[in-house]
């Protein structure tokens, strides 16, 4: 398959993202057309009701979807690159199951009523859960370069199982109400999005992207393997830990506000690799844009598929995303055979 020029891909993705975010604002339960949407955006002559819905509900939600899609995809790319494992994604390292434990424990034991003030408390619980998972992973994964990848992956998988078990055992003793709230949380949703939720993930995403761009030499060197990277003067062990730390922080900040959203981190980097050769310095930006673009439309679907109610985002990413990816693989396989 002929690869695309990264610059053309970048320009078209930026245009598409802008258009998608704009048009996504016009979809929702309330009947607001594109013209009214644009009016509300320019803050000129639209009803206050429309303005409020656009600015307080749909805008933070759409932007959060974009940041979440982009952030999870970039985190996936980082982990796949530094571990040279095509299956690596934030979920594999127990980061999201750590967040789930935070939420479950919070829902199950917050009867004391200290924390029940705001929605943000749930996010804080999830964030702490992810940080604990990350700290454990860093503590366990070895110091020797040779075995670092292996021990990271194994420790990540073990941690995932550990956290799922803690989640299950807590849910086992909780009441059905708490169970369904947690279940919905694990399926992911952007419907709770508020402006303050965007701050931390937004800052982290920009920071992570900038640092990968600055460290692109090391990043690309790792694609060649540990030995080659060391020969090229990269401190592989430290660089890998840094990447793990950054991607975990990013994931934790996202999972804590959106819940569990699978697929994006794993698949989007692969989709980009289908079209763009791997060693391009622009790859992280493309992955981020495509992830964001994908998630914005997933969120639109989650608002529209069922009349008067929401379909959890995780279901759509899992279903449509996997089918799309399988189709892409099938097509590629076909072309090779011809």
């Amino acid at each position: 398959m002929n690869k695309l020029s990264p610059v053309i891909a970048l320009v078209s993705l930026i245009l598409l993202s802008g258009l998608s975010i704009l048009s996504a604002l016009a979809f929702g339960a309330a009947d607001i057309n594109l013209l009214q949407t644009l009016g509300a955006l320019r803050l000129s002559g639209s009803e206050p009701f429309v303005e409020q819905i656009i600015w307080q509900l749909r805008m933070p939600r759409t932007l959060l979807a974009f940041i979440a899609g982009g952030g999870l995809a970039v985190a996936g790319l980082m982990l796949q690159t530094v571990t040279r494992n095509p299956l690596a994604d934030p979920y594999l390292f127990g980061i999201s199951s750590g967040a789930a434990v935070g939420v479950v424990l919070f829902v199950a034991f917050s009867g004391a009523g200290i924390f029940h003030v705001a929605q943000l408390s749930l996010s804080v619980a999830a964030f702490i859960g992810s940080l604990v998972a990350m700290a454990l992973l860093l503590a366990v994964s070895g110091t020797a370069v040779a075995k670092q990848v292996e021990s990271m992956l194994l420790a990540g998988v073990a941690l995932s199982f550990l956290f799922s078990a803690i989640t299950s055992v807590t849910l086992y003793w909780s009441d059905p109400q708490a169970i369904s709230a947690v279940l919905f949380w694990t399926m992911g949703s952007f419907s709770r999005a508020q402006w303050p939720h965007l701050v931390l993930p937004g800052i982290l995403l920009v920071t992570v992207l900038l640092s990968i761009l600055c460290l692109r030499r090391q990043f690309t060197a790792l694609l060649l393997g540990d030995e080659s990277a060391i020969t090229l003067g990269v401190n592989v062990r430290r660089f890998r830990l840094l990447m793990l730390l950054l991607s975990s922080l990013l994931t934790a900040s996202l999972v804590s506000v959106c819940g569990g959203i699978g697929f994006v981190g794993l698949m989007i980097p692969h989709v980009v690799r289908f079209f763009i050769s791997q060693a391009q310095p622009l790859t992280p930006v493309l992955v981020c844009l495509l992830g964001g673009l994908f998630m914005v439309w997933v969120d639109v679907l989650s608002r529209l598929l069922l009349a008067n109610q929401e379909l959890p985002v995780g279901i759509i990413t899992g279903l449509f995303g996997s089918l799309f990816f399988l189709g892409l693989m099938y097509m590629r396989q076909h072309r090779y055979q011809e």
Partner: peptide, 20 residues
């Protein structure tokens, strides 16, 4: 207001409630 929703315990958004 949500009696006609397709699922028994539907998840809704603030916007759904505003419209309802």
């Amino acid at each position: 207001v949500f009696s006609q929703s397709p699922t028994k315990t539907p998840q809704v958004s603030i916007e759904n409630v505003i419209v309802a």
